[in-house]
């Protein structure tokens, strides 16, 4: 059971809060990635606040579902989701990337509760998820395994080794989510190194494929529930998203992949998200 079981309206509100957290902590740290965290926010909110069987009060709960973030650089999103879910205090978000903070630039599972495995080098998460899914099947357990990936990391060869493995061993307890925002550091994914047609690739490798609007909460929930019921094949949800979603001057621009907003830009972004830096940082400080 998911401990929150939020409805669509609550999930949209949580995704908005997550976006506010992301901008606020990036303004505070003045270091980190903006674009990917914002594009992942809706799918991550749906997973952690409606689907995932997890227990923030006991991160090592042996019956929990597992979600692996293969994209370590969306750490502002990861930390916001975990703090919002109650794994650690919201105020910790204001220590992001600072010395002695447990919230490092890329997540370290030995420091931060709720992180299943450390990440930062792309193309590794799906193999890890495959191993966990295989081990869970060996035990005859019902736990589900999820893996959050980016579109750019589909360029890594190791991803396709894992794609083959999951299909070969029929890991139907595995559901991958791809944040297909069509942007990576060097520009448009189509121009840097085209990964299209992505759905057809997964399909031809033997996966069950869903293509959705990664910002439409109804479609996200529908696909996640369909994945959990599908048997015989691993599933992938390709969520078409917009980099920087929710902040007009970041949307669709690759230049926002790896940089934080300056304080004035952050204020502008937070205004679009219906708050101010002062108000939201106060909320975090008291959380």
């Amino acid at each position: 059971m998911n401990p929150f079981n939020f409805d669509i309206e609550q999930l949209n509100q949580k995704a908005l809060d997550i976006r506010r957290d992301i901008i606020t902590l990036l303004v505070e740290s003045q270091s980190g990635h903006s674009g990917g965290p914002l594009s992942c926010a809706d799918m991550a909110a749906a997973l952690y606040f409606n689907i995932l069987n997890h227990n923030p009060g006991n991160p090592d709960d042996p019956v929990r579902d597992l979600n692996f973030f293969s994209i370590g650089h969306v750490s502002p999103l990861i930390y916001s989701v975990l703090a919002e879910a109650g794994y650690f205090p919201l105020r910790d978000l204001l220590t992001f990337r600072k010395l002695n903070s447990h919230l490092e630039g890329h997540p370290n599972c030995l420091h931060t509760p709720g992180i299943e495995v450390s990440a930062g080098s792309l193309g590794q998460g799906l193999s890890i998820a495959c191993g966990a899914a295989y081990g869970i099947k060996m035990d005859g357990s019902e736990r589900s395994v999820f893996c959050f990936m980016g579109d750019g990391e589909q360029q890594e060869g190791s991803i396709w080794e894992a794609v083959m493995f999951a299909a070969h061993y029929r890991l139907d307890n595995l559901c991958a989510l791809i944040d297909y925002n069509h942007r990576q550091i060097d520009g448009e994914t189509e121009k840097v190194m085209n990964i299209a047609p992505l759905a057809e690739k997964y399909w031809s490798f033997g996966w069950n494929v869903y293509e959705i609007d990664g910002h439409n909460m109804g479609e996200i929930l529908g696909a996640l529930k369909a994945c959990s019921e599908f048997t015989g094949k691993p599933s992938v949800i390709i969520g078409h998203t917009v980099m920087g979603k929710g902040v007009s001057f970041m949307e669709g621009l690759a230049e926002w992949h790896g940089k934080p907003p300056a304080p004035d830009q952050g204020e502008k972004a937070l205004a679009e998200l219906g708050t101010t830096f002062r108000e939201w940082s106060e909320r975090l400080r008291n959380g």
Binding site: L66, F68, E116, V117, Q124, S127, I128, A129, C130, G131, A132, A133, Y134, G135, S158, A162, F165
Partner: peptide
């Protein structure tokens, strides 16, 4: 990394 996942 499949081994890593199994260890987890």
């Amino acid at each position: 990394n499949v081994a890593a996942g199994l260890s987890l």
